[in-house]
Design a protein around this nucleic acid. Structure first.
Lengths: 262, 262
DNA sequence: GCCAGAGTAG
DNA sequence: CTACTCTGGC
């Protein structure tokens, strides 16, 4: 089974690129982030024509997640509150950043973690609080679902220094600050492991390059899109690769797909 | 001598198409409307390289007119106020819609008449008042210049029913309402004649097709781009043609060029 | 800086 | 439908 994650930075702007990529890479499941479209306007037909079932949770202009799957997805739910159920979770669900469902015996969670803007900002605080709720959410989901879990998406956190082109002076940089790295580690402590690092130890592998400053040309990137697996699944994983080709196209997303296989 | 008029709907978006067209159609003078660029940012070099002198009067985002000429243009002036000189004219000149100059013994006036939005609107009122000032402007210009006159551009008025694909129910439609047609006729009454109609009497010839509703595909167009000539010049005119080829290109202007020859 | 979307105009 | 500005995210 192949599961890919890709922050497409608008599904309407990237429709053709995502279609082309799926034809070259007929993964079983594709998790999208930053679809930037309300559910009603999501371009479903182009992907249904390629044989995918679609499950979307979007909003106007910002955020938005979607799962595309070759087989129907069971028990689909969107947002934190159907699982966590409190009013805090309901507040967070105003931003469409979470969708999950079960394919076969695997529970797939597709996330778009808040970016956080800059360390110390209100949005940074929101990101840290969001990650706390995420931990709760995943813990409950894990207890509920007996099988394996794949938690993937755009985490907006580079877990280690080897996940950044130039780690110097990045302690106070968003996506690399100690507090968010620790918040991510507390999420993973429920029993999730970084699949990319099962296969690749060295640095220089990234999934996001800033549109500014010709970051892609100089490979000044960040590895912030991840697949986290529960132990059984992690053991069964046979591959985890970043496909940088879509980032080379004209008018690309600033992220590129990451694919796990097990 | 060949004089063309073309509403290009942004010279920056249409630069290559206008260049290509000029190489195929090396007219003596090309009058452009809706250049949509301030004079400082007008792409002069690409047209100078083709051997044209440029005279521009533009603004940010909207309107804007330009004259391109193989030979230098004398006595260039922009707006109503240098000719008409009152405060009302100065108000109208905030929108860049008028440029004129002399080539040989011909006074060429290049106009972008206000669209008027919809009959009865504030913009419609503005259009009617603008046409009144235009009449004054042309009258003074005619008295000043002893020679011939060519008044061309986007008039945003279809003078007769044969200038519209489907004239039914168009009495209350912008560009065909009685008041604007009458206002145009009062302008022409100073002694100007519609050159296209010297050569072609039947309907079905248009210079503008709405981007919406696939109007071009069905030839549901309007003839709103005109060359009006003073009597001598009208007599000497040997041809007046609409070139629909540019409207067939990908990403076209909604207007296509009209060329007069005398 | 380089993208999006929203709004505006035609 | 196509262009523009503006705003805002990253």
């Amino acid at each position: 089974m192949k599961i890919a994650t890709w922050n497409v930075n608008s599904i309407r702007a990237r429709q053709q690129q995502v279609r082309d990529w799926l034809q070259e890479n007929p993964v079983d499941v594709l998790c999208l982030q930053e679809t930037k479209v309300v559910d009603q306007d999501f371009p479903r037909a182009p992907f249904e024509q390629l044989g995918y079932h679609l499950y979307v949770s979007g909003q106007k202009a910002y955020n938005g997640v979607a799962i595309l799957s070759r087989t129907p997805v069971e028990e689909v739910s969107t947002g934190f509150s159907p699982i966590v159920g409190d009013t805090q979770a309901r507040d967070f669900d105003q931003q469409k950043r979470v969708i999950c469902g079960t394919v076969g015996e695997v529970c797939i969670v597709n996330l778009y973690v808040p970016n956080g803007s800059s360390v110390g900002s209100d949005k940074y605080d929101y990101k840290l609080r969001w990650l706390k709720v995420l931990r709760e959410y995943l813990q409950i989901l894990k207890a509920k679902s007996p099988g394996a879990m794949c938690v993937c998406g755009d985490f907006n956190v580079a877990p280690e220094n080897r996940d950044i082109h130039d780690p110097s002076d990045k302690e106070s940089h968003i996506m690399a600050s100690p507090a968010e790295r620790e918040a991510l580690q507390e999420v993973l402590a429920i029993g999730l492991a970084d699949t990319f690092r099962k296969f690749t130890s060295e640095g220089g592998h990234y999934s996001w390059w800033d549109y500014r400053t010709r970051a892609f040309r100089g490979n000044r990137g960040w590895r912030i899109d991840h697949h986290y697996l529960t132990p059984d699944l992690y053991e069964r994983a046979t591959n985890c690769k970043i496909d940088i080709l879509p980032r080379k196209l004209p008018k690309p997303s600033d992220h590129t797909p990451v694919i796990v296989e097990f």
